[in-house]
Amino acid sequence: MLLSILKKLLPLYCLTFIVISCNNSNTSNNANKLLNNADTLFGVTAAMANIKSGKYIPLYGRDSQLVTINSFQMDILPVTNANYLAFVKTNKRWRKSNIKKLFADGNYLDHWKNDTNIGNEMNANSAITNVSWYAAKAYCECQGKRMSTVNEWEFVSMANENIADARKIEKYNQQILAWYEKPNTSNNPVGNSLKNYWGVFDLHGLVWEWTSDFSSIFLIDESKNDSSTNKKLFCGSGKFTKTDLMNYAAYMRYAFRESLKANYSLQNLGFRCVKDSMINNEK
């Protein structure tokens, strides 16, 4: 009985669902159309790439500790202005004029014309920036996703177009460092870089990205001088070796993360979301 009533109501629900999910469907872009695994909520469809589990030694690990990454999915693109606009349209407390000071500093969405207008000077299809850690967290959680950890982000970002770990390839390092020298890349559209080994775009080249545990990075140990202090990260602590060039780019990212506070909203800092993989992680 109940089922038959529900069944009759089904077309209505589906219709509502379609209305909701189609809201703002114009925010998709070319790269978005390329991939599977679509996700919908507040009208934003974000394609995700599957990242297979693996092990690696990050630059800032303790005693060259091997880190295990469980398989997960990562947005292939950074969240864009248009995506974020759809988010604040339905989630009013994250609008520029409503944002609580606890959750974002005065620069929050500073580049937007107003609450629901990106303005003409900003590219709707470029990465959202001037958003705080709290805002990025809320955005991802609202979609049933989360921010990546530092270790996950670094794991995916060490890939070039062909291999999963390109950190020892000179060209890979040079390209990243060349970007670090280039000013004002944040208004370039997303999805125009080369697709990396995992199918992910723009980890390097446009904006820096928030990570969930950025605050676990402290290069100078604040608790006391215990063994976790990584002395090799200090300038002048020793001569540069060949691996240092590769580490330099990563060091820049770690140092940048260390300098952040969660309420900071910066012009060159955006985010993307990830989620745990549905596939069981093999141990």
Binding site: L3, L6, K7, L10, L41, F42, N91, A138, G144
Partner: peptide
């Protein structure tokens, strides 16, 4: 029927996920 039921439930979950 079971499939429809699941779809409806999923729909409600998807709405409630964005409580804000």
């Amino acid at each position: 029927k079971a499939i429809h039921f699941i779809i409806i439930i999923l729909f409600f979950i998807s709405i409630s996920a964005c409580k804000n």
